[in-house]
Design a binder for these strands. Structure first.
Lengths: 211, 211
DNA sequence: GTGTGTGAAGTGGTTCACAGCG
DNA sequence: CGCTGTGAACCACTTCACACAC
């Protein structure tokens, strides 16, 4: 178990190994090799082994990895010591999609509060979660002890929402789905997912494949 | 203009430059430097210059880049020689979110057909686009000459939908939003966006920041 | 023999630093 | 003098290749 900083691409793959192992365990598979995992996720076997080796010797030489054991092991690496409290700002289609998203059903975190500007949503529960005015975000975020906020508001509103969220003082991370570069203080960890960029990349490489 | 393969991260940034320039042009800014662009998008100025240099000398030394000219220039690199026809399979919340997505309003492509299994959706128009049974996908894809399909169906259905889409024979690219690894023939270009992985990464690095 | 763990080599992308042009 | 364009240096991630454990 080294204390080296783990690279982002590695973390990304760890999440995928974890999911795959969950599935394999459900199917009753007991043991899996790096080659098998690699084939199923389209990675090289050596990549899989290197990723897993960062956390100590967990496989058995000549045999492979014990599915259940490896699942728990990676779970321990990814899992947080505690349950994260999450808020979601912008209950449009994308926000609701995330709320109902399978892979978001997770023991690691819980969506505690929603925020929107639409009066017909404020004060109601959506998919079981209470929705507040975005004006009240700083107060609610503090009261609920929310440490991560997902932003799914329209582009133009994203920065002002981010500012308000940061002003609560409790928020440690923001996951932004708007196609803008947000500016937040260094104390807040910011990740962005730009849904449309992947489509543009796909089209770009398709174009360049064509001739 | 070199014919070197352009790296994926570069394409990703080009899309962002393009968007930024559109905005700057709208605000009436005439000239922009690599340093300014870098600051606005959180890239190093040298990165911006290197990216732009792949396509010939487009800036003016001592001055910067002419906003409008650079916008058109990048547009020409990213733009397709033709309008792509796009299909979308799975008109759930995520699918609808994409349909209504600002950044998806684009002259490069057009969403021509939707596919779903829900009888209450099949035969109707959703946000102006006709919805067909997923059973009919191969026929409709051929008739409409659709070359790219976006998959936003639940995880369990993703592979079978992909297979059906590929069987149409017209589809050259698939953009997958399900958190599974799809297998498609080499002739089809596959990109995947995994919305939940970014959240897991954020939480992972938050955890490791905490102590 | 089989499959892991890992140093070493390789590849790909980013950043530097400075020459060169406006 | 300012800011671009770009080879060279640097850094990060991936892949190889093989010793070693089962």
């Amino acid at each position: 178990m080294k204390d080296t900083k783990i690279a982002e691409p590695t973390v990304e793959r760890l999440v995928q190994y974890h999911r795959l192992l969950e599935q394999l365990a459900a199917e009753g598979q007991k043991v899996v090799s790096s080659r098998e995992m690699g084939e199923m996720l389209s990675f090289k076997a050596s990549q899989v082994r290197k990723d897993l080796s960062y956390f100590g010797e967990i496989g058995k030489r000549g045999v492979g990895y014990h599915v259940d054991r490896l699942f728990k092991h990676i779970g321990g690496i990814l899992a947080s010591p505690r349950l994260w409290s999450i808020g979601l700002a912008g209950v449009g289609k994308l926000g609701e999609a995330l709320l109902g998203y399978q892979a978001f059903r997770n023991e690691k975190f819980q969506i505690k509060a929603l925020f929107d500007v639409d009066p017909s949503k404020i004060g109601t529960h959506i998919q079981g979660t209470p929705c507040y005015s975005i004006e009240d975000a700083p107060r609610v975020l503090r009261e609920e002890g929310i440490d991560v906020v997902i932003i799914t508001v329209p582009t133009g509103a994203a920065q002002s929402v981010a500012d308000r969220v940061v002003s609560a003082g409790t928020v440690k991370g923001i996951l932004n789905f708007s196609p803008v570069t947000l500016s937040v203080p260094d104390s807040v960890l910011l990740y962005s997912v730009d849904i449309s960029i992947e489509l543009e990349k796909l089209l770009f490489y398709l174009k360049h494949r064509e001739r």
